[in-house]
């Protein structure tokens, strides 16, 4: 019973921390001049798609692709001895999909920041992880 309550409380804290992370985003990466330079550069030199659909759909999809790549970078590189990766694997093993989904949302929010600070924000996801491993 206590564990069930603890689990719920941690989950609620975790959700609030996610909101807090999103409020704290100072500058999304898609607003940075370097990002725009990269996009403009390759569009100027190369007609990456010989069709007009590029300007309508692909420019927006670049943000999505970049966001996914940045999130994977956070998970898959050796940050804190692969702590995020280990946490995610444990949650997959235990089939705690809600906690897993919320942690991934947290990681996406962290990677939206142009200069992400995983050292600070990773630990804000711990309540969600603990809530996931409590029986």
């Amino acid at each position: 019973m206590v564990q069930k309550w603890l689990k719920h409380i941690l989950l609620i804290i975790g959700v609030f921390l996610l909101i807090f992370i999103s409020i704290n985003i100072q500058k999304p990466f898609w607003q940075s001049p370097t990002y725009h330079e990269t996009i403009l550069n390759f569009q100027k030199d190369q007609d990456i798609f010989p069709y007009k659909i590029r300007t309508i759909w692909w420019n927006k999809s670049i943000i999505l692709i970049s966001l996914i790549e940045r999130t994977i970078d956070l998970i898959w590189t050796d940050n804190f001895f692969y702590l995020p990766l280990i946490c995610l694997f444990l949650l997959i093993k235990k089939r705690r999909w809600i906690n897993l989904g919320l942690i991934i949302i947290g990681l996406i929010l962290i990677s939206i920041e142009n200069d992400p600070n995983p050292g600070k924000y990773f630990f804000w996801l711990i309540p969600l992880f603990i809530a996931g491993i409590i029986k």
Partner: peptide, 20 residues
């Protein structure tokens, strides 16, 4: 097994900073 390499940008057939 990095999903980024396997599914997003592992094949070096365009410039590195090219999102496509």
């Amino acid at each position: 097994f990095n999903p980024k390499i396997l599914f997003l940008n592992g094949l070096n057939i365009v410039n590195k900073n090219n999102p496509f």
